[in-house]
Design a protein around this nucleic acid. Structure first.
Lengths: 210, 210
DNA sequence: CTACTATTTTTGTCAAGCTAAAAAAATGCG
DNA sequence: CGCATTTTTTTAGCTTGACAAAAATAGTAG
């Protein structure tokens, strides 16, 4: 990236950034890996995601291994199918190298939006590892839906503010700020914000899932 | 964007997002306009930017009018030449429609990075209008450089914290928190943070420039 | 009004975006 | 452990969109 001199008070820097033949910044190589990470966190096979995106299985495989670069329209389709914005694929490249995969600054949290206004911000540097840490916000009345779900792994969390009603395998718990929980994720579970103000929860999950 | 049901506690939504033939979200049409806006704020002609990007003049014109869609690599080159990250081109599409072009949330400020660690965050919704409002942060010792610059228009600002040494047409002013300034931009000007802590300035400029 | 600059339009090439099918690898179950 | 099934990778091939170069048009300044 050309770092411009400030135009407001300085003559623009002489053009140093002559068109480089190609050696794209390595961080630009991470689209494929990001796609695969999200796909696996979602639990999709290549075939499922390919169908959601409207591309072929083989092509998606090539994309994930950075052997093909999708068009912007195709990348939009992929991002939609994975439930993220297209910027997600480029965000990792904007983190300073010494902090990459280690630290997440407040203004660089990656964001996942769900139905009912539920928002997750990723506190762990990546979904690619084994541990996912989220800051989840639940508007009043929002819920995960009627159908409980179970999957492999484990999760735990603590309510920072507001209240959260947690249903685990037939038992209901009302959690307030300061309360916390943990359970193996194969137990059917669902949740809801029963209050009239936003709830915020720090949530940990292994393996990553969203 | 497919808005996923929460996987942590709900069975994934049945696939409703069958591959749409094409009608891309209108917000995805804004790459070209964003490029043209930045190019003009930078004061570049098509020919200058095309040379910086390594593409032809005609092709850049088609891109700016959304009559062609660049490859991701080309878009990266364009973003570098304009001194922004590629996410800039997609950021506008992520703003809720009722707030678009009106409100900038703190977590959605668009960011411009300059040499010497100077950072601008765009407080106005866009550079496309007539008025640009910025939150500028200057690390200790950073400056706009030795060469003063002048351009058309006018600018003004107020120091929120730290100190800023402002040089305008041969006169030097040391500004502290609470101090403010304003001048027609055709006067040669430059600035520097002389202190040992970060300075922050709210800066307004017309017409937009960076 | 004219000369020059900036932008748009047009024509054309070709390789990259992408498919479908086959091959290989991985996984799960008995 | 062997086998059937699923998942992923590889391969061969099509086509159209990414992109260049040049000509035409529009805009600007003196």
């Amino acid at each position: 990236m050309e770092v411009p001199r400030l135009r407001r008070a300085g003559r623009p820097a002489p053009t140093e950034s002559l068109p480089e033949a190609a050696p794209a910044d390595p961080s630009e190589r991470r689209i494929g890996g990001e796609i695969r990470t999200l796909r696996k966190a979602r639990g999709y096979t290549l075939a499922v995601l390919a169908e959601k995106c409207g591309v072929s299985v083989g092509y998606l495989s090539l994309i994930e291994r950075d052997m093909s670069t999708p068009s912007i329209n195709t990348l939009h389709a992929i991002s939609r199918a994975l439930g993220v914005t297209i910027s997600w694929f480029f965000d990792a490249g904007e983190v300073p190298a010494e902090e990459r995969d280690l630290v997440v600054r407040r203004n660089r949290r990656r964001r996942l939006d769900y139905s009912a206004g539920i928002v997750d911000e990723l506190l762990s540097p990546s979904l690619a590892g084994q541990l996912e840490l989220l800051a989840s916000r639940f508007p009043p009345g929002s819920s995960s839906g009627d159908a409980p779900y179970s999957h492999t792994g484990e999760e735990a969390g603590v309510v920072l503010r507001g209240s959260l009603e947690l249903w685990i395998d037939g038992k209901i718990f009302l959690l307030e700020a300061g309360d916390s929980f943990g359970f193996p994720s194969h137990l059917p579970h669902r949740y809801r914000n029963p209050g009239n103000e936003e709830a915020e929860v720090i949530w940990a999950i292994t393996p990553p899932s969203y």
